[in-house]
Amino acid sequence: MLGFFGISRAERRLIPDTRLAGPMPWVIAIMIFLTILAVAAGLSLRSGASAINAQLSGRVTVQILAGDSDARDEQLAAVERALDASPLVARRDTLSDEELQQLLTPWLGGDILDDAITVPAMIDVDIAGPMTTQTLQELRNLIVAVSPDARLDPHGQWLQPIFDLLLSLQFLALFLVILLSVATAAIVVLTVRGALNTHGPTIGVMHLLGSTDVQVARLFQRRVALDALFGSLLGSGLAALALYLLSRQIDGLGAGLLDSGQLDWLDLLVLVLVPLSGIILATIVARLTVVIALRKTL
């Protein structure tokens, strides 16, 4: 009766299972575990970067740094009018004295708004449409025209190094995935070559009896696929447990930016594809290794 990979149970006995199994399933389990973590990290960073970008990059803080509070209030009112009239602005939110107090108390202590220090007025502005250099310049011209002491602080500017870092980390994760894939393929190649040497006489007899390279390759790829399946299940299970524990810890922190790195269902689908890809990769590499090695024989 034909079974997995179209090989009968009797044909499977041509290559004894125990000789090929060895450490490969365990090594593949480790590789799959590390690959899933690397992919999850990459996806989480991408998700976090997107969320931060969506939240902050289109936002500008306008600070009005007048010498005294009267001038500040006058300029504030003028800026507010200008912003309200501008099509560049989707929304503006002027921070109240209480909000400013809350913002500054950790650094300057309480009661500062009642003292001699004039605290800058602050307006959060959400830009309508994409944030470009031109948009920023137009907004700056608009504000400076009514408030010479105003200063624009685009969030995207100070976020750029963070985005660059996140992008670098994503590339690093991708590089790790590639390295782990290459390492997995190398392990399969070495294992299959060893098995080919071990079973050389049997393969030689099979060839002389009319066996094709593909028939021989099927025996090896089936064994490797089973090892990879076992390793993938084990590695995936461990990785799922690790990711679950990490997400629990992140939930416990309640930190906004960390929360933004949550994986959605599409990301989870990608993670599920990792072990499947591992099995397919190992199987294809095993087949190619056998076929290429046999091509050197008559």
Binding site: H207, L208, L209, G210, S211, T212, D213, R295, L298
Partner: peptide, 9 residues
């Protein structure tokens, strides 16, 4: 090589 098995059989 791909024709060898047929002859060997």
């Amino acid at each position: 090589r791909d024709r060898m098995p047929g002859f060997r059989r």
